[in-house]
Structure formats: C-alpha cells, structure tokens
C-alpha cells in the first residue's frame, strides 16, 4: 500500500475502489438516493406547478375562493372589456351560455354577470365549472366575490337555473391589458362527487 500513496489521488480512488467492493455499495446507495429523490421530485412538480401558477397566473386559472371586496378606488381613467365564453366538456350534456356576453368595467368597479344552465337529459347531474382567463396574466387580477364555480352545481333532470357571478378587477391590472376573456368549462362530475351530494340532489325538492 505504500506505493499506492505515491499515486495521484485519482489513481488512488480508482484502485482503492477496486480494492473494496463495499465502496461499490456506497456509490450505489448515493445513486439510489438520487433515483428516489427524482421520483419524489416528479410528484413534487404537481404542487410546485400549482404554487407557481397561483403566483404568476400563467395557466389562466382564477382563485377558487371568494374575494372580499375591499373599498378600492375605482380607476375611472381606464375601461376594461371582459368577454365571457362558455363550453361544456365532452360528454357533458348541459346547455350552458353566458347571459351577458361582454361587459365594460373600470378597474375596482363591481360587476355582476349571469350564466344560464339547463339539464336537458333525464338524469340528475352534478357539474363543476372551471374558469380560464386569456391572456393568463390577467387571471391574477380578477377578484370574484361570488361565483358558481366555487361550488359543485347540481341540477335534476330537466331543470334549469341562472348562475350569478360577481367580480371586480384589481386596479393593479397591468396597463397593457385592456381586454380579456373569461371562459368557463362545465364538467360532469356526478361519478366522482360525494355520495352524500348525490343523495341530497335526489332528495331535493327542486331549487
């Protein structure tokens, strides 16, 4: 081994490793830790993505919690056009339309719009609406004080309803955004909804 010491450290690494099989074990353990870590990282990307999108708004999702209207100063110098689009996911039979197709509001000003839904088929359905704002960066500045998208929406067979949504635009909205589109997509979630919810729908005497 004395000769070994004269070798460069690199040689030594190569040799002593060859000398002791357990050093294979050490290297393997480290590499396995990376494997496990990266498997975890793949799953960690899911919440990371949500947090990242909440902060930056890049996926165009608005907050799924009601905003409290703070007495902000209405910025009368700007007028923002908001358009509403509705669609239903594949396999969702409801009729769904925006009663107000477009509004013009000042930032900070409250606005109320309504959406019409009808369940034309002969089974009860629970729906969930998912919002999407385009351009996505505007999503951060849409503050909804009330929205049908915050809750599951049950409709019995043949029923119809008007679903309200009130919102105001944060005056911090970047100057370059003068127009944005808010789209709602309705999903049929009856299959995955709580059993209690389905029972409640079946027992309810209509709205």
């Amino acid at each position: 081994m004395t000769e070994l010491d004269k070798q460069t450290s690199d040689d030594k690494a190569a040799q002593s490793a060859a000398l002791s099989p357990q050093s294979h074990g050490k290297t393997v353990a480290k590499l396995l830790a990376v494997v496990v870590g990266m498997f975890g990282f793949g799953f960690a990307l899911v919440p990371l993505y949500d947090v990242f999108c909440d902060i930056t708004g890049i996926n165009g999702k608005t907050s799924d919690e009601a905003a409290v209207y703070e007495a902000v100063e209405i910025d009368t110098s700007r007028m923002i056009t908001v358009e509403f689009i509705t669609r239903t996911n594949t396999g969702m039979p409801w009729e769904f339309s925006a009663q107000t197709k477009r509004v013009e509001v000042h930032p900070g000003e409250m606005a109320e719009v309504a959406f019409y839904v009808r369940n034309p088929v002969s089974r009860d359905i629970i729906a969930q609406a998912i919002p999407s704002v385009s351009p996505g960066t505007a999503a951060l500045y849409v503050n909804k004080t009330e929205c049908f998208c915050f809750r599951h929406q049950p409709l019995k067979a043949g029923e119809e309803a008007i679903m309200p949504m009130t919102f105001y635009i944060d005056p911090q909205l970047p100057e370059d955004i003068t127009f944005f589109t808010l789209q709602y997509t309705l999903y049929d979630i009856t299959a995955s909804a709580d059993e209690a919810e389905v029972v409640a729908l079946n027992n309810s005497l209509g709205r």
């Binding site: 190569a14 490793a17 290297t27």
Partner: peptide, 15 residues
Amino acid sequence: INVVVTIFNMRAPGM
C-alpha cells in the same frame, strides 16, 4: 447505475 459505479470505481491505475 452500473455504468456510473463501474466508471467511478473500476478504472485501471492511471486512467
């Protein structure tokens, strides 16, 4: 893993 361990630990002297 096998490739990494081989290259890290089994190089000939002087490699």
